[in-house]
Design a protein around this nucleic acid. Structure first.
Length: 556
RNA sequence: UGGGGCGUCGCCAAGUGGCUAAGGCAACGGGUUUUGAUCCCGUCAUUCGGAGGUUCGAGUCCUCCCGCCCCAGCCA
């Protein structure tokens, strides 16, 4: 049977490589640097790399690119590992680290020196910059470029042994100081770092640069297709230079695709780190952040993240995807899978005059409107209830089309329960409604009311005698500007001051006492919410709003 | 004034010279509905950054022009 037509350029390349036998087995890798948390942009790369391996029956490795000890830590390794698992992917074999290959990489560095292809340069960082030239002018050779190999070797060993201070000298490849590609103007291969490494401790004092490490790591692991983002396209000639000039065990190929950009947020590790470090948000897992940890805490299902990523094109254009597209996949997943429940965010008391004070019943309601297999639950019902303030008005002039909720003197359906009529409103001294006196229309549970009674709509409610007082946190976008970091803007200036609204007097239906971390519920007519996994108590849980329900009427 | 990459609907995109330029998101109409949700039905590019050219035929090939992104870390 014919395979469906390849849908992106990388799949086309791989298919061709398989047909040509230039590739025996497809092996990809996801190579994060453990210097921050993963975000939605990384998710695209993860889904791509793991997805390709699965599609072509190959493997995908997880490899930490830990070549810069100054910025990396085990905390990030743990967090990243957890996030990838949460997303639903399992890497092949053990977790790998660039630091696993330090010995081999170092040996290759010496080999390059011996072959006259690398040298120790003692130019200061400032001088190095001057010698490099500019975009339009060629650079000039370092005065150390032609020093004897023995001398470079000796110096490199001193660097390795920790006898050289940071910045004093580096190992550089001898390529072409006049290359129009800046990456080929004798790039740095090794530099001295005296900070300890999160895995190798203080056993090394020199660390390979990204360029010197990445391709060789790929080659060691037998990566067939090394996929990275567009900004590395200029590095490809260098990537290939090492593969050609070193006795590496395989010949991986690098391909670049456009990274994901989303509006109304930032996806740059540096900026995310700044938001966290300067306490503009509440940690890396703040629900307003596009980090995987943040999305998880917000209640976004991993499947929604995957579906979203799979909907994105793998191409070389670098566009900005509408946050609305991500929202769509979140709602789509949640609508299908979320158990329904009711929670009143801004409660107002309703007393049913024609309901016996001591009569309390249970009403069975389905957990999902169309999926019967999700079962049903029982809602306590009694004389005193709570409904939302926004669902009641004394303004009797509002048309049925304009206000499909409870109006003084009119009828409304309580979801899953009776039709009621608002008979009177009780006010406090300030004139604010503090209680609604209402009455039920008999025999209207699961039944239409008698002829002539037309409920204006359906509203949610909670029984006062058996409910869960709770806090609800409403999250909105973190930035009010669609492009918070465009041009010379300071992204901190467009932080949305209303990105978090805390509602502390909410009441949820009794069944939510057993709400589980990890499942997102639909609070009917409000949106999707999940139990916060950090704050809150059993007596007074906290729910995070994952996303509101689609709202096509409020703006009209 | 160097090199690399990219320009198809408001956003993301398919399209690999030959039937009427896919699809998703958004938007806008209408229907169903015990969630103003979901669901359903419909509308939404005579034109592919621009101008020339090749061809019976061009979004796809050629030329020139315009615009946007990336590169001058001992970051990745």
């Amino acid at each position: 049977m014919d395979k469906p037509k390849p849908s992106n350029f990388i799949e086309q390349i791989i298919s061709q490589d398989l047909r040509d036998n230039t590739t025996e087995r497809v092996v990809t890798r996801f190579p994060p640097e453990p210097n921050g948390y993963l975000h939605i942009g990384h998710a695209k790369s993860i889904c791509l790399n793991f997805g390709l391996a699965e599609e072509f029956g190959g493997d995908c490795h997880l490899r930490f690119d830990d070549t810069n000890p100054a910025k990396e830590s085990d905390e990030f390794v743990q967090a990243i590992t957890e996030d990838i698992r949460w997303l639903g992917f399992q890497w092949h074999g053990e977790i790998r680290y660039a630091s696993d290959y330090f010995e081999q990489l170092y040996a290759w560095a010496e080999e390059l020196i011996v072959n006259g292809k690398a040298y120790i340069c003692e130019l200061s960082p400032e001088q190095t910059r001057e010698y490099r030239g500019t975009l339009t002018e060629p650079g000039k050779n370092s005065p150390h470029r032609d020093r004897p190999a023995d001398e470079s070797l000796t110096l490199l060993r001193q660097m390795r042994d920790g006898d050289i201070e940071e910045g004093r000298m580096v190992l550089r490849a001898k390529i072409d100081m006049a290359s129009p590609n800046m990456n080929l103007r004798d790039p740095v291969l090794y530099r001295v770092k005296q900070s300890g490494h999160h895995r190798t401790g203080d056993s090394w004092h020199v660390y390979p640069s990204y360029d010197f490490a990445h391709g060789q790591e790929d080659a060691i692991e037998g990566i067939s297709h090394s996929i990275c983002t567009l900004e590395f396209a200029d590095h490809r000639p260098l990537y290939e230079w090492f593969i050609q000039n070193l006795p590496v065990p395989s010949t991986p190929r690098q391909y670049e695709f456009g990274r994901l950009n989303l509006n109304y947020t930032v996806t740059s590790k540096r900026k995310l780190k700044q938001l966290v470090d300067e306490n503009h948000v509440d940690g890396w897992n703040d629900p307003r952040l596009p980090t995987l940890a943040g999305l998880r805490r917000r209640g976004v299902p991993a499947a929604a993240v995957r579906d979203f990523c799979d909907s994105l094109a793998v191409a070389k254009t670098d566009g900005t995807v509408d946050m609305a597209q991500f929202d769509h996949f979140i709602r789509q997943n949640l609508n299908d899978h979320s158990p329904r429940a009711m929670c009143v965010l801004n409660p107002i008391k309703v007393t049913l005059g024609n309901w016996p004070e001591d009569q309390q019943i249970q009403l069975a309601v389905p957990n999902h409107p169309t999926r019967e297999e999700m079962g049903e639950r029982h809602l306590p019902f009694g004389q005193v209830l709570y409904i939302d303030r926004a669902d009641f008005t004394e303004d009797t002039s509002l048309s049925k089309k304009k206000f499909k909720r409870l109006v003084l003197g009119d009828y409304v359906r309580l979801r899953g329960a009776h039709v009621i009529k608002a008979d009177a409103a009780v006010h406090d001294e300030a004139g604010q409604v503090i209680e609604i006196l209402a009455s039920i229309v008999l025999n209207t549970v699961g039944e239409n009311p008698p002829e002539g009674i037309k409920p204006r709509g359906v509203i949610h409610w909670v029984a006062a005698h058996d409910c869960v007082p709770c806090e609800v946190r409403l999250y909105d976008r973190l930035f009010s500007d669609p492009e918070p970091d465009a041009g010379d803007k300071n992204f901190l200036d467009s932080i949305n001051p209303a990105s978090l609204t805390i509602l502390s007097n909410c009441v949820a239906e009794a069944s939510l006492t057993t709400a589980q971390v990890g499942t997102t519920y639909q609070f009917e007519r409000e949106g999707y919410f999940c139990l916060d996994d950090r704050d809150g108590t059993t007596e007074r849980p906290i729910f995070n709003r994952t996303i509101s329900l689609r709202d096509t009427w409020s703006k009209k």
